[in-house]
Design a protein around this nucleic acid. Structure first.
Lengths: 153, 153
DNA sequence: GCCTTTTCTTGAATCAGTCAAGAAAAGGCC
DNA sequence: GGCCTTTTCTTGACTGATTCAAGAAAAGGC
């Protein structure tokens, strides 16, 4: 785990211009893995109060396309971003509150699974989402997504 | 593969009222697996021209909650519905045009995979999405989602 | 057939995300 | 360091999927 990654270096390595919004967005995703765009906008504005939401959306798109971020979007959720990339890990998602946790891939390299019948597709990744209930939701009767989001703030 | 499933019976079996919109929605999903809501609204209106989009949305929600339909929503796509339920099969999704194909689960029962570390979650399903390019998109240079949707109509 | 409950219609609203035009900032070059 | 071109950011409007809300209509039990 990199303690304080050299963000400008990461950007230059991907042949991207180094701008304040991009640095702030990268930093925010590092600090808040699995956060959604709205939470990231708020986090970025803690450092750079005047950024437009559009700059954050643009940065997220560009950083994702460059492979510096990974975007996940479980059914029923808005887009979420993380910086663990290239290790093909998977996710655990709580059906009740939407909490997301990482799970290492037992196999390692993508695609870690092989389809029984590929239908002629050229497959490059097998994305796995484990659905269930997180520890908090397993014990309390009817927690909501709001409960979880409140916990995250 | 059930040739012509007894739709009213399916609804009653799930303790749901039998209404014309619900029958038409169930029929439309049977006829168009992996179709999105918009395509289903169009299909349903072929049989029942006056249905409101809201009735279709409501029916899809109710039928999904009752377990008669399964809803899938790969990243970057709108919600899609299918009637193959209970067999825990997986999906192949084309990154280029969005086409979806079914893949049988090699294991069978859910959850077919076990997470290396469950983080205390009670897991009930492992959803697998194989990402790649479909045969048509593998061969042509830059097909778009529109190409595929045009093909589907 | 009547009555209660559920479902459907109509129409407005929300929310995430995108589009477009011009202003500002990056980075190469002298 | 200053200048120029290109990319990125700001501002503000817009779209498209989905949901909300109120009243009308249809289901199904009696």
């Amino acid at each position: 785990m990199p303690t304080t990654p050299d963000l400008p270096k990461l950007l230059r390595g991907a042949e991207l211009r180094v701008t304040r919004p991009r640095l702030a967005v990268l930093g925010a995703v590092h600090a808040h893995p699995h956060a959604d765009t709205d939470a990231l906008i708020r986090a970025v504005r803690g450092e750079l109060p005047e950024v437009s939401h559009q700059a954050v959306y643009d940065s997220l798109r560009v950083l994702t396309a460059a492979g510096l971020l990974r975007r996940i979007q479980p059914s029923g959720s808005v887009a979420r971003y993380e910086t663990r990339i290239g290790d093909n890990h998977h996710h655990l998602v709580c059906r009740s509150c939407g909490a997301v946790a990482d799970v290492d891939c037992a196999v390692g390299e993508a695609p870690c699974l092989t389809a029984s019948d590929g239908h002629g597709f050229s497959i490059d990744e097998a994305e796995v989402i484990y659905w269930g209930r997180c520890p908090a939701c397993s014990s309390s009767p009817h927690p909501t997504r709001e409960d979880h989001h409140a916990r995250e703030r």
